[in-house]
Amino acid sequence: MNQLPPDVPAPYPVIDPLECKSCGRCVMVCPKKVLELGDELNARGYAFTRYKGAGCIGCLNCFYACPEPNAIKVHLPAKET
């Protein structure tokens, strides 16, 4: 895994625990394997996906593969010019 220098802003996913239905599509398509299904259940009874906290490269695979419109957002840092 290419480690980015700590002072460069990194992309990261934001997963709304309530909106995740625990299908695992995002986990399946993440090239960096930085997503995982947790053990904790949300209010609707699903064991929601968690971001491991580092390693996201902003490929957006998880966003596009996720069927729930409000479950995943991905923050991409400003592009360096």
Binding site: L18, K21, R44, A65, P67, E68, P69, N70
Partner: peptide, 20 residues
């Protein structure tokens, strides 16, 4: 109750197509 989630089953790709 869940007016922020779709009515689709977990893992169904209707939601993916809706988003696209």
């Amino acid at each position: 109750a869940a007016q922020t989630a779709t009515h689709y089953c977990p893992g169904c790709e209707h939601g993916v197509l809706h988003k696209l």
